[in-house]
Amino acid sequence: MNQQEAVKTLTISYEVQIEITQFLYREAHLLDSRNYRGWLDLLAEDIVYQMPARITTEGKHDIPNIDYKSRYFEETKQSLITRVKRLDSTSSAWAEISGPRQRHFISNILIEKGVMNDEGNEEYFVRSNFLFKRNRGSALTSEELFGCREDVIRKENGEWRLASRIIYPDQTVLGTINLSMFL
């Protein structure tokens, strides 16, 4: 670590650990309870929100298997607002009409490191696992998606914001009929 980096690297305090964990749980709660407007408020204006595809590759157990060219989400704040607007302000978003029930199970929260960014804001690189379950109508089987996320969580004017999220699904063939949810 050179000197400049050392200055920028932040220690990860207990307070930060608790606040970030609570931030991710709060986010999951907003999604599960379909408070999508509230969810949008947690996102930084310059958010990067991506979901590349998982593929099966040939080789040993630890061979890379993400195809970054093939994606399921590539969003900006504005495009996420459009997605929410469709649900909130149109009368025919059939995929989500009569709101399918959904839960985001977030676990294994690991704060890898913290840095002070060029604007003087704290940013933490955070990993977490997700299990998303959804049930529609009176279906006896529920849809499922799982994987991990790599987030950058930033403190802006004293508030935590999601600055970047990359979602890595563990399924190569998605287990949900669509991706009308946020992960």
Binding site: M51, R71, Y72, F73, T82, R83, R86, S92, A93, W94, A95, E96, L174, I177, N178, L179, S180
Partner: peptide, 13 residues
């Protein structure tokens, strides 16, 4: 795409 605003509704219907 599967997350696409048009595609989503097709699969549901």
């Amino acid at each position: 795409g599967p997350s696409g605003l048009l595609e989503q509704d097709d699969a549901e219907i």
